[in-house]
Design a protein around this nucleic acid. Structure first.
Length: 280
DNA sequence: TTGATTGTTACCGG
DNA sequence: TCCGGTAACAATCA
């Protein structure tokens, strides 16, 4: 679940639940202990998302930092809380709500300074109003790395995961193997704007929806794991031109593209690419 | 049981 | 130094 949209959605949902004194911060399975007790009875001032990171900021400056990794998830409920289910790393209890965080990759207490340092290393977050796309462009235009890798590099720009990169590159007709320095400024601007628009839809719908009609919330129903919510992710056929979808790994994750709609800048760079795809 | 995965980091070699 | 490839870690589910 965790691309940027779901983290921002959690920040939005959890702020009113937790923005008061926390009566308990605990670790039901003993999997997260260091510093947790430090937060008991303290006031949570804000729940803040930055890229795929979530920070619970406490009065006095300390913060609880959580990164969900590939599998982590939140379970929020009004009190009284049920028994913890699954591998709960940390449980936050306010007078009104309980928030369980299951199986996160990172779960730690940081000082305010440590939080600032961490955030400084994160690229501009497409979901934050204060994000500066020029920071991302400066990195991209200097790099020979493929754009499909750069947009998922959280230090270049933050919030985009494998599905969004695949879908937005297709929507904007950008071949994922285009070297960053070969990308036109106009293409970057379109990628950025579409990222902002689609991730905001994702926050509102609590789901990755990249097909047209998403704004109205009418998309998303359909067979298959991704139903009609995505265009080419794990699909075999391009919904725009009917051509075949290629799949190949970039940055350790499988991506997809339609060569007809996303013409390669340098055909030589495509050596080794294999046709595939199942679904469809 | 196996394999894949909406993520990230470290390491190695060219 | 940069970049591509690979492995490792992690939890869940088909």
């Amino acid at each position: 679940m965790p691309e940027g949209h779901s983290i921002h959605r959690q920040a939005r949902d959890q702020t009113p639940m937790l923005r008061r004194k926390l009566v308990a911060v605990s670790s039901p399975q003993g999997r997260f202990i260091d510093g947790a007790a430090l937060l008991d009875g303290r006031r949570c001032m804000a729940v803040e998302a930055c890229g795929k990171h979530l920070f619970y900021r406490f009065a006095g400056g300390d913060a609880l930092h959580i990164h969900l990794g590939l599998y982590g998830k939140f379970l929020c409920a009004p009190r009284p809380a049920a028994e913890p289910r699954g591998l709960v790393r940390v449980r936050l209890e306010s007078p009104t709500h309980t928030v369980d965080c299951n199986g996160p990759n990172q779960c730690e207490v940081l000082t305010g300074e440590e939080v600032d340092r961490l955030i400084a290393r994160i690229g501009p977050d497409v979901l934050r109003d204060d994000a500066d796309p020029e920071r991302a462009w400066a990195r991209i235009t200097k790099s020979r790395a493929p754009i499909g890798q750069l947009v998922m590099d959280q230090s270049v720009m933050a919030g985009i995961g494998n599905i969004y990169r695949t879908e937005i590159l297709w929507r904007q007709r950008i071949h994922p193997l285009t070297p960053g320095r070969a990308l036109e400024r106009d293409a970057f601007d379109r990628f950025w704007a579409d990222s902002v628009a689609l991730l905001k839809v994702g926050v509102n719908l609590r789901a990755i929806v990249t097909v047209d009609g998403a704004i109205e919330g009418t998309a998303g129903r359909g067979p298959g794991r991704y139903g009609a919510r995505t265009n080419i992710f794990k699909k075999a056929t391009c919904p725009r031109c009917g051509g075949p979808i290629l799949q190949f790994p970039i940055a350790a994750r499988k991506t997809f593209c339609c060569e007809a709609c996303q013409p390669a800048v340098d055909p030589v760079a495509l050596k080794g690419v294999a046709a595939a795809g199942e679904d469809g």
